[in-house]
Design a binder for these strands. Structure first.
Lengths: 214, 214
DNA sequence: TAGATTGTTAATCGATTAACAATC
DNA sequence: TAGATTGTTAATCGATTAACAATC
């Protein structure tokens, strides 16, 4: 199994398209057809499918849509839930808390923590905001797998260390710094504002090299 | 100039670190030191800097922190504002509307549009939510550069077409589909839930190949 | 001067794409 | 059968990393 980061990022697009096809009553689909809809290379689609699919495609026929859907769902973990807590309920943190779609994608944000007494004690979309001091006790009492860091960069390393001390093994890091962690810990650095650089580049004076990015 | 997508995504991390150094009173910095802090390759840092910096580094000394900061800010467009409207004020849309930090990163979301009469007419963080029918008229009256699509996938292509008809040249697409656009249009596909696939993989039964991702 | 650090050219690595034989 | 479509091996492409000469 050699599911690269790029492939994992492509899977949700496959899934969305396959669900759309299923709704239209399509039962089998060729890699070429998927590739064309998603503007990907045909061989890449076949390789991606080979990595996640439980059944092989049939020449002249293609792949069974239903099987592909459940294979991708299983691979992406949409049929289970990973538990998470979020540290830093500022605007980025709140943005994640109000996102009611995450459970559909396998993520269950259980609670949030902050130091701002204006928001501590309140609730956002049924997610309670606790004082940061309560972090360790909460983690003792609850099985949490993922820590989501949406605090300012200058507090992020401290928070990360505390999360790891609580036994958390994976960090979804929205702070713009590179966290120092043992190598058995998974850190995914999310960089939403990084995208804005593309638009800035594009709208600079002479935008000659316009093209699609993803 | 050959600023790749990867390099653009790294720049905000450089910037954050350089600002931190400036606050500590550091005036010059070597590529090696930046590389070490950000866990990047030293040559990569030098190449990235070469692409954005207005002045050369000095052997034995490094680069002037202040210059690097303003060069990166200029390159990322943090000293200007691009105007945007957002279509689809569901939870993902609202998440972006409440993010008051975007103007610091060069993005000014002027207004939102939706079809849901429960939210049309209301305001989120001073951003008015208009009915979707008003889109064309609004774009006539206001200079808008970027369309942010946070609607469900099955409406995204229609919305995209309408935005392009309004003269919008860049799309920040959060819908999980590949939009069909002329090649002079910039589309950046954001895939936040795609990240969740990494965590699912990691927490599957035998997670042997644990490592950092970004 | 000596050597830390730069900038650049060459090598490596990994992902994508092309070519093609296998098969339903 | 014929040919559309698969799966795989080889080639390409681009980004990262290593090697090294230049220089303050």
């Amino acid at each position: 199994m050699d599911l690269t980061a790029q492939a994992i990022k492509r899977l949700p697009y496959y899934l969305q398209h396959l669900r759309f096809l299923r709704e239209k009553g399509v039962e089998t689909i060729s890699a070429a057809s998927i590739a064309s809809a998603l503007k990907l290379n045909e061989v890449q689609v076949r390789k991606d499918i080979a990595l996640v699919s439980s059944c092989k495609g049939k020449p002249r026929v293609g792949f069974p849509v239903n099987n592909l859907i459940s294979d991708i769902e299983a691979c992406l973990g949409y049929n289970r839930l990973n538990t998470a807590i979020l540290i830093g309920a500022g605007c980025m943190g709140q943005a994640l808390l109000i996102n009611t779609a995450f459970p559909k994608y396998g993520l269950d944000i259980k609670a949030a923590f902050d130091i701002n007494s204006d928001i501590v004690g309140s609730t956002i979309c049924d997610k309670h905001i606790y004082p940061l001091e309560y972090l360790e006790e909460y983690c003792d009492k609850n099985e949490i797998q993922i820590g989501i860091i949406t605090s300012p960069a200058n507090t992020a390393q401290d928070i990360c260390d505390r999360l790891l001390a609580c036994g958390i093994k994976a960090i979804w890091n929205f702070a713009l710094l590179t966290l120092d962690v043992p190598e058995d810990i998974l850190v995914y650095n999310e960089n939403l504002v990084g995208t804005l650089g593309f638009f800035s580049q594009y709208f600079k004076e002479d935008n000659t090299n316009r093209e699609n990015r993803s």
